[in-house]
């Protein structure tokens, strides 16, 4: 399956990278494990591909966007201090893919849909969809021009649970914003205000991140290869046996990774006992709205939100409680 022609740019600095963005339509290339699959299927191919693999700025920091998932998975600091990040990384795709795929690529992972992630012949056979070559949605008759393709990154819910920030660099300036304000609930637009020529440089954890216990639960049929059909990250900041603060984030249930503040708010300061956990889990099940566009059925994925949530929260409790 030869890739269609494009011009590859291999800048060695961010400044060089920004310079080539002026050459015409382009895609950023991180690990390539998602983008090149789409290109092979002739999905939204652009004339220029700008590889970020040689840009050293992206490899700096614990959560540099250019670090491979394999590096993240095995990083001793992450494993010791923020194990949920290493663990979530270790659950992505396969060990071979994790050797190339990057942290940044996973955070920026394109949304997925059974009507989109298909070969050109497949898509053209029924007229394609609004995320690719057409202006209709094959999942919902009237999605109101919003694409409901599923966001399926595994790191985003965990980093949302840590309340991480992301650092973006653009041709004229750099900026930092909370991850919770980064994504947009539209499978095509995907980001609130990230400009095409902005690059994700790294994620950053807040100073108190180490005081949080974070756990991630992932729903998938096989223990390798599969994207999440549902993912729940739970975070608890314990204070003398009380859950002083709680966060809950999901992936794969929407076109955006979501932080569910309102579901956990009533339980802040509680002991987070089984009853509280069940209440949160039930509320989450009622909240998520999976679409019929992935391998497992929406009703099952919805039910599993409760189980994933319960298990993630239970895992957050101190050992022996």
């Amino acid at each position: 399956m030869r890739l269609p022609d494009f011009t590859l740019h291999q800048p060695r600095t961010l400044a060089q990278a920004f310079a080539v963005t002026r050459d015409g339509p382009f895609d950023w290339l991180g690990g390539g494990t998602d983008l090149l699959c789409n290109y092979k299927w002739r999905i939204n191919v652009r004339a220029n591909v700008i590889s970020l693999r040689r840009v050293p700025e992206l490899r700096q920091g614990l959560l540099g966007a250019g670090r491979t998932l394999s590096e993240v998975e095995h990083d001793p600091v992450l494993r010791a201090r923020y194990p949920a990040i290493a663990q979530a990384a270790s659950m992505i795709a396969t060990p071979l893919i994790r050797q190339s795929a990057t942290l940044g690529g996973n955070l920026l992972l394109d949304t997925r849909c059974w009507h989109f992630n298909q070969t050109a012949e497949w898509r053209f056979a029924h007229g394609s969809c609004l995320k690719a070559e057409a202006d209709v949605c094959r999942v919902l008759p009237d999605p109101g021009n919003l694409c409901v393709a599923a966001y399926s990154g595994d790191l985003a819910p965990v980093l949302l649970a840590y309340d991480a920030r992301v650092v973006l660099a653009g041709p004229s300036a750099s900026r930092s914003l909370p991850l919770r304000e980064f994504y947009a609930a539209d499978g095509i637009r995907r980001f609130r205000d990230k400009k095409p020529d902005e690059v994700l440089v790294r994620a950053e954890l807040p100073a108190d991140a180490e005081h949080w216990t974070v756990r991630y639960q992932k729903l998938r049929l096989r223990q390798a290869f599969d994207f999440p059909e549902g993912g729940v990250a739970a975070a608890v900041r314990w204070d003398h046996g009380w859950a002083a603060d709680i966060r809950l984030a999901t992936t794969a249930y929407d076109s955006i990774p979501l932080l569910h503040e309102d579901l956990v708010a009533p339980h802040r300061g509680s002991s987070l006992d089984d009853e509280a956990i069940e209440q949160i889990a039930q509320a989450l099940e009622e909240t998520v709205r999976p679409m019929k566009n992935t391998s497992m059925s929406p009703s099952y994925r919805k039910k599993m939100a409760r189980v994933l949530c319960r298990r993630a929260l239970q895992d957050c409790r101190p050992q022996g409680v």
Partner: peptide
Amino acid sequence: DLGTCGCCAVQIDGRPVLSCLTL
């Protein structure tokens, strides 16, 4: 040719990678 079988793995600087998804 899509990273979903591993038949194309080679090593680059000793690391196993998918040659089908590496330019």
